[in-house]
């Protein structure tokens, strides 16, 4: 499936925005202006942009936790200012400041985040079941990392999605690392997507640093699911430049990752690769790229201004108790 120039521009723009927002989150965490923790997405933003940029509003999306889902959510058209407000404990946050790093945008069918890695598999079956029953061509984009496929729930979802031919894309963003453990130690085969073979599910392995390759695969899988042809496994081989979680040691196994290793990874930064390509193919000129960066900087500023000018949520215990159950 070849991308047209308009699609490439959409992807490139979202890649620039994701890059700026990841830097914003990183800086705010360093400055103590973010509640909780942050799992930086440096080097790993291409798969999420590709997975979410061409979804419809009524398609379900569960973002990968890396970058706290910001890459995926902005690509699906969600205004990130409500998430930053949440992540800073403000009353304008998407969850009223109750959730720390969790997000919820039900109107965009990004229902939740859970602290349990692999939480996305079981509800994805339900979303896929609902989509099939409604028969309106909705799809489920189930994004998570290589580590999440250690969960038995992943097996259950792959099994039931194939049994029932549900419109689910199992989109594995394989960065080769689960916290500090290498996937080669935690998974018996080279490709996580080789799991799909056991279920009779079609699978693709793609370069997760190439946002355009990722999008071609995602679009093919989305179309396959929309036509009622069932699930697809897409494995994007990506990487992780920074530590798992800011403030924790950056290890491979139990030894520090070398600076040489990280410098080598930076050569394959998805924005660097995409920029080379859009210039070479005449998709964008340099001044247009500069303008996208300026727009992204302004977007970051607006997001931060919104969050910083909002009030800290201070409901009473009685108000919280009154909100425990739906009317």
């Amino acid at each position: 499936m070849n991308l047209n120039k308009q699609q490439m521009r959409i992807l490139y723009r979202n890649l620039v925005r994701a890059d700026h927002l990841n830097r914003m989150m990183y800086q705010r965490m360093l400055q103590g202006k973010l509640i909780g923790f942050y799992h930086p997405s440096d080097g790993a933003i291409a798969p999420g942009v590709a997975a979410a940029s061409f979804l419809n509003k009524d398609d379900n999306l569960s973002p990968h936790h890396r970058g706290h889902g910001i890459t995926h959510m902005l690509s699906k058209g969600i205004d990130i200012k409500y998430y930053l407000a949440e992540h800073t404990g403000k009353d304008t946050g998407c969850c009223g400041g109750r959730s720390a790093f969790h997000f919820s945008f039900p109107e965009h069918k990004v229902y939740m985040m859970s602290g349990f890695i692999g939480y996305n598999f079981a509800p994805s079956v339900g979303w896929g079941w609902a989509a099939k029953r409604r028969n309106l061509g909705q799809v489920v984009m189930n994004c998570s990392g290589d580590g999440s496929y250690g969960q038995g729930r992943a097996h259950e979802a792959l099994l039931m999605a194939t049994n029932w031919q549900l419109p689910i894309i199992f989109y594995c963003e394989n960065n080769g690392m689960a916290i500090h453990s290498e996937i080669s130690e935690m998974h018996p085969t080279e490709d996580v997507s080789s799991l799909a073979q056991g279920y009779g599910m079609p699978a693709m392995v793609i370069d997760g640093q190439d946002v355009f390759a990722c999008a071609e695969a995602a679009l093919a899988a989305i179309e396959h699911a929309r036509k009622g042809k069932g699930p697809t496994f897409v494995e994007a081989k990506t990487l992780r430049i920074k530590e798992h979680d800011m403030g924790t040691p950056d290890l491979r196994g139990w030894e520090a990752r070398s600076e040489e290793e990280k410098l080598a990874l930076m050569q394959r930064d998805p924005l660097v690769l995409a920029t080379t390509r859009v210039l070479a193919e005449g998709v964008l000129k340099q001044d247009a790229i500069d303008q996208l960066h300026e727009e992204a900087s302004r977007e970051v500023q607006e997001i931060e201004d919104f969050a910083d000018s909002s009030k800290i949520a201070r409901p009473s215990e009685e108000q919280l108790l009154a909100a425990a159950f739906a009317p």
Partner: peptide, 23 residues
């Protein structure tokens, strides 16, 4: 009246996800 494999998480996921979808 839906029967699932012996997979409690997946089975529960059908209910949980479908409930989010308005079922």
């Amino acid at each position: 009246i839906v029967d699932t494999p012996i997979a409690e998480s997946g089975m529960y996921g059908v209910a949980f996800g479908a409930a989010q979808e308005g079922f």
